[in-house]
Design a binder for these strands. Structure first.
Length: 624
DNA sequence: TTAGGGTTAG
């Protein structure tokens, strides 16, 4: 299908015309030649004929630095060893390996013969140093010279497209590989899976992956990571199992990827199982695997297990420290996050921009306003880290949550870095908490100017109108969403029982034990009512009467998952649930009551943070 | 004489 699409879209009169974020090209599409690239520079007769290629190759192999490579190069030039392609390629490779692209290019231009390997070295050399313009330029030259594409040179440019996240260009290269008959090239396919996955076109990645005749460990790893990143971690972990079923033994990189998938999923039992599996492999906890495991345990709800790993790591880098700070932050333990910062500095590790995002986030979610302000002002003054829009967003969140909305607005208006949707979204969230309809409308105008495509912002605004009883305005927003083709993301809650995940939507009756779940919910509801719980109908945002609103709240996905947890998880064990959106205010109150009345610990992971409910109190101190 | 897959936030 892609072949015909490629011809239809890109190829015209034997020429290929193309432009994307990275490229603007026109060249002949006939690149099926099997002959090496013709001589483009000097004629062979111009060289001195007395030389010993073997001697020069050995000299090159013993070079320890760029200076020595240049010295041998000078000798070769004098003795004419360029006639030997292997020697010239080796020299080219050494220049590229040492990042001396100017020397490499000069040599390449002077080479009397080039084979596909020579081209691979120079094209790949530019890609390695991140000079993608030169990389694609040389790739275009490669095609123009009629060099055949193969399973080695094509993946280089496909990877460049991946790094640039240039899907349009990636599709073009894919088309060219098809025209060159590389449909089943092992490396080409693996790099295409990676490219499509990183460009978030997971279905295209999956299609190529499925059709591959041989899938090695690296290709499986790419696919497992891509599925996790694309929001389907359950499938990602299933792929990990399938890979092992096919007899492929994971290495450390694959383990890091599966740990990442588990972090995305947030399932504690799965995390423990993977940890046990890693222990069984005998791999040591190096800085990358250890950091991934800190993140996994934290995102599965156990910040203590994350700290346990952290304390046992031999080597920690800035990413490790930032991950641990972030973990404390989204578990609402801002003070502990802040304690780590001087410890990190004491170990000689300097913070980066992400460390500051984590610190500011931790301050914001623990109500540590002055501390947050101090970090914000010190990040440039003391550590040379320039605040970007993410840091400003944290500050707006920090001030906004504390009710200092006008200060937050002032900060936005005074900032010089480019404003984005998330920044205004943070202020809109604060308007929702503090019921500032006046400011919300102003924020909405800014979001509208940015042509926000985030349905969450529209929903937030419609909720603000609903809270104020402005049903007509709410309807207008919903109408605008419909016209813009934006849909509210449906809320889902997951609960893991015995390593199996159960998913609930609002009013869900698909679970086989649905009638028991609703009976449990009713029984709990009666107990809660006696204890003084009143459904907060502000969170049932529909223009209906109070009784109906209560009914809508009653069947929120969080409540259904908790009722199921009460049915199947023994007393003494925490009930852990994961919500894809922010937990609703009424469900938050419900959890507090249940934790008190049923004497159960409930741990909720929502889209922003964790809430630990115990004895009727939430770790977020109702500050979220 | 050629490769590729890994950690923190949003």
């Amino acid at each position: 299908m892609l072949k015909s699409k490629c011809q239809h879209i890109f190829i015209n009169h034997g020429k290929l015309r193309f432009s994307s974020a990275s490229l603007s090209w026109q060249f002949d599409v006939n690149c099926n030649s099997n002959e090496p690239t013709p001589c483009t520079q000097e004629s062979e007769s111009s060289h001195v004929l007395h030389y010993d290629p073997k001697r020069f190759r050995n000299s090159l192999l013993s070079c320890r630095n760029l200076f020595q490579v240049r010295q041998v190069h000078a000798q070769i030039a004098t003795n004419g060893a360029f006639r030997n392609l292997a020697v010239a390629n080796k020299l080219l490779f050494l220049y590229v390996e040492r990042g001396a692209l100017e020397d490499a290019q000069e040599l390449f231009d002077g080479m009397s013969k080039r084979d596909p390997y020579s081209w691979s070295i120079i094209v790949g050399g530019y890609a390695k140093v991140g000079d993608f313009f030169s990389c694609f330029w040389m790739f275009r030259e490669l095609l123009r010279c009629g060099t055949p594409l193969d399973d080695y040179n094509a993946p280089i440019v496909i990877r460049a497209c991946r790094d640039l996240k240039d899907l349009k260009c990636g599709r073009l290269i894919h088309c060219i590989t098809l025209k060159c008959g590389l449909d089943y090239g092992q490396f080409v396919c693996a790099s295409l899976v990676d490219m499509y996955a990183r460009c978030k076109v997971i279905e295209d990645a999956r299609q190529i992956f499925v059709k591959m005749w041989k899938r090695d460990l690296a290709t499986w790893t790419v696919m497992i990571g891509a599925l996790a990143e694309s929001g389907v971690p359950v499938e990602s972990l299933a792929f990990f199992d399938r890979m092992r079923d096919e007899g492929i033994v994971p290495d450390k990189v694959a383990l890091v990827t599966v740990v990442y998938a588990c972090a995305k999923l947030g399932a504690m039992n799965k995390a423990k199982a993977i940890h046990a599996y890693i222990n069984g492999t005998g791999y040591s906890l190096d800085v990358i695997l250890g950091t991934a495991m800190i993140d996994m345990y934290a995102k599965c709800g156990s910040v203590d297990s994350a700290r346990w790993i952290f304390d046992r790591m031999q080597v920690r880098n800035v990413i490790t420290w930032s991950a641990m700070i972030a973990a404390y932050g989204y578990h609402g333990q801002g003070e502990k996050a802040l304690e780590l910062f001087p410890m990190m500095l004491g170990c000689g590790i300097l913070p980066n921009r992400i460390t500051f995002v984590s610190l500011l986030y931790a301050c914001s979610h623990a109500g540590l306003i002055e501390e947050g302000q101090r970090f914000f002002s010190s990040m440039w003054d003391e550590y040379g880290v320039t605040p970007d829009v993410k840091h400003y967003t944290c500050m707006v969140d920090l001030l906004g949550r504390a009710g200092r909305l006008d200060e937050a607005l002032e900060m936005i208006e005074g900032m010089t870095v480019e404003k984005d949707e998330a920044l205004w979204g943070a202020l809109l969230g604060a308007c929702r908490i503090h019921r500032r309809l006046d400011l919300a409308e102003r924020v909405a105008t800014s979001l509208h100017k940015l042509q926000s495509q985030n349905p969450g912002h529209y929903v937030l605004l419609s909720n603000i109108y609903a809270n104020a009883g402005k049903w007509d305005d709410m309807a207008k927003i919903r109408d605008l969403m419909t016209k813009s083709g934006l849909r509210k993301i449906p809320g889902w809650t997951w609960i893991e029982v015995n390593e199996k995940l159960y998913q609930f939507g609002v009013g869900d009756k698909t679970h086989p034990r649905s009638s028991e779940i609703y009976k449990m919910l009713k029984r709990i509801g009666e107990k809660l009512e006696l204890a003084g719980y009143l459904p907060d109908t502000n969170y049932a945002l529909h223009d209906v009467d109070e009784e109906v609103k209560q009914g809508l709240l009653y069947a929120h996905s969080e409540k259904l998952a908790i009722a199921f947890g009460l049915l199947v998880i023994s007393q003494g064990y925490p009930i852990r649930i994961t919500k894809n959106l922010r937990v609703c205010g009424d469900c938050h109150t419900f959890c507090k009551f249940v934790s008190f009345i049923e004497q159960r610990t409930i741990i909720v992971r929502d889209a922003k943070r964790f809430h630990h409910f115990k004895e009727g109190v939430c770790s977020c101190r109702d500050y979220w």
